[in-house]
Design a protein around this nucleic acid. Structure first.
Lengths: 217, 217
DNA sequence: TGTACATCAGTGAACGCGCGTTCACTGATGTAC
DNA sequence: TGTACATCAGTGAACGCGCGTTCACTGATGTAC
């Protein structure tokens, strides 16, 4: 079934998309090439018309997943539709996100395995993480945080670390009550970090804040 | 070489010990039974005199690693030798710990994979995490934090989440500067959370605090 | 104390399976005339 | 516009390899006499 370039690109993207989801669910080694191709409606052999090795797909899938999450969360939508930092934290540390790793954040699902991946995959991951920090800083400013970039960056990094660790632990833990407690406690703590002092004293903390300033990279 | 029960137990422990290290370094699927046995000075076949399946070893190794870390960090040593909460944070988020996952905390190295493990492994992991929280709460009190257990527990959970996420991200990231920044920024932020307000205003913050009270489970 | 025997931790070859990868082939499409 | 040909995405069987697990065997030790 020889096809046009456009058709090939579409197939390629479909494979990457499916792999990205399955990897987040089952781990980078948890799904076979054959299974992925089957889910894409194809057979094994064709895989190598699109990727030199399985590892190449891993790298692409990691990058795709991060890009998709960022796009969904912030980049592609208008300022009014962007989530506040509080909404972002609550969304990230939610039962829905915990239980749907395939649709969720790559970082939370795959950090451990990415640390053991080849350089290219780690490099792509690093770029995605940097973009995420920029996004978080932007949202911190939009929530009314003043102060220099260095300070906000420190806060953004802490928030990022805590969200990654909390969703990882919440998924690993056996006990549903503890799992929810980890998410709830961490989210509460992070929101006090993320919102400027005067905001935490007013009612409606955690609700939508009007953006005061915007930061572009 | 038929041996006594004591000798068998010793061999068993050696296998678990080695597995626990290697799993933290290479992931739960990253080392073969044959390699582990070889490192223990044995051959493959003997493995099944000690474990019914490889998965049984995984569960034991996870539990062993957590127990060892807890013991090393706190449980087995006298109050005077226990690290302060600030020392604990700095030690966890250090280059040394980042670069020696085999000697370090199981949680940070394996959360992602444990989430996909069988129930028994997750249950053992959960117990270890609960013990860690108790330890953290104890250290928070020893640092002079007042307040009810619920509040301290929330803080302990946040610290735990952030440390897990930060060390995971620091290991995954490609860029050495960013890696250290993640650890440093998170540690700094956590220490302001972990130390009571008056302590953060005095010089010597982050140094050893005299324990005021102790908490037993 | 000395001897014969049963036990069972450890051996190492072999088995079966799943997986990543290869390869000769197919047939629809784009292109040249 | 219609026809012949070259391209190449996709097929699916086959290959090789590594891994978890099994199994008949060994031989040092603990035990019964």
């Amino acid at each position: 079934m020889g096809r046009s370039q456009a058709a090939k690109a579409e197939t390629h993207d479909r494979i990457v998309q499916i792999a990205s989801e399955r990897f987040r669910e089952a781990g980078l080694e948890g799904v076979s090439v054959a299974d992925l191709m089957k889910e894409a409606g194809l057979t094994v052999g064709g895989f190598y018309k699109h990727f030199a090795t399985r590892e190449d797909l891993v790298a692409e899938a990691v990058a795709h997943g991060q890009g998709a999450w960022l796009a969904r969360t912030a980049n592609a939508i208008s300022e009014e539709e962007k989530p506040t930092i509080a909404e972002l934290i609550d969304g990230y540390l939610s039962v829905a996100h915990r239980d749907a790793p395939g649709q969720g954040c790559v970082v939370g699902a795959l950090v451990g395995e990415i640390a053991r991946s080849r350089p290219q995959t780690r490099a792509l991951f690093t770029e995605g993480l940097k973009d995420t920090l920029v996004l978080l800083i932007d949202r911190l400013r939009a929530a009314g945080n003043e102060g220099d970039n260095a300070m906000l960056r420190r806060t953004a990094i802490s928030i990022c670390s805590a969200m990654i660790g909390a969703i990882g632990a919440a998924r690993a833990v056996d006990d549903p009550a503890l799992s929810e407690e980890i998410m709830r406690s961490t989210a509460a703590q992070l929101k006090t970090l993320a919102l400027p002092l005067e905001a935490t004293r007013r009612p409606g903390v955690g609700g939508r804040q009007s953006p005061r300033s915007q930061v572009s990279k």
